[in-house]
Design a protein around this nucleic acid. Structure first.
Lengths: 119, 119
DNA sequence: GAACAACCTGGAGCGCACTCCAGGTCAAGC
DNA sequence: GCTTGACCTGGAGTGCGCTCCAGGTTGTTC
């Protein structure tokens, strides 16, 4: 379709749960690329941008740093030749997340142990 | 036993994996209490302190803030009457950690989805 | 045409959890 | 008695990820 819905910053913020300031910050830092503009210079976000912000927030929530995300974005911008590296990056991060899950489970065990003790 | 092994700051740091500066910082902030001193004024940590630092780090690693940990410590210092509140605090935090696990699992699913896409 | 709202930019400020530093004490070894 | 090293204190500095601000433009509404 040619007629793609475009979102204003306020709408984008509403849709993603990310503040307008943070959206601009991400763009400045290279974590969101090629945001289009209306004739008056205002940003217009696409549905793809909405999806990407979702991914971005998800990866951030698992401890991926701004730096790593920027790198991942740059790879994406460079085209399909970087797919192996992107896959590697995600695979590595996957291991980090699994490690986090393991640590949280340890923490749960410790909390349960403490709770047991308080009974 | 009366003859309890006491650890110097350097030994404590070695044992817990927490830097000497951070150990002092925790003490200043009320997260580690009643650290004994040698005659020359140097700190001497007990095995109990080692255990407590382990718990503290575990709770910190799950996102419990310094503020919450300080509160938990203060409750501990106030004696057994605060046990219900401590139990409540841990129970609440347990739910937070479970929520984190759920989010990490969502992230893993997303990463796997992306990886699938790159294949 | 005045007021208002939504947005723009560059840059400053903030909160958290450390981390580092300057200047000093004290005990042990040479 | 001088150096060295481990420690002390109070306070300043750091890095990350936002968050806020001042001053300006544009478009709409009364």
């Amino acid at each position: 379709m040619v007629t793609e819905t475009k979102l204003s910053p306020a709408e984008m913020s509403e849709r993603t749960g990310v503040s307008i300031d943070t959206l601009r910050y991400y763009e400045r830092e290279g974590l969101v690329q090629n945001v289009t503009r209306a004739e008056n210079g205002h940003r217009r976000y696409s549905e793809n941008d909405v999806l990407w912000i979702g991914v971005l927030r998800c990866l951030r929530a698992t401890g991926m740093t701004m730096e790593q995300l920027r790198h991942y974005c740059e790879l994406g911008a460079q085209g399909v030749t970087t797919i192996p590296e992107r896959r590697q990056l995600l695979t590595d991060h996957r291991a980090v997340v699994e490690q986090q899950v393991a640590e949280l489970n340890e923490a749960l065990a410790l909390i349960d142990h403490k709770l047991e003790y308080y009974r």
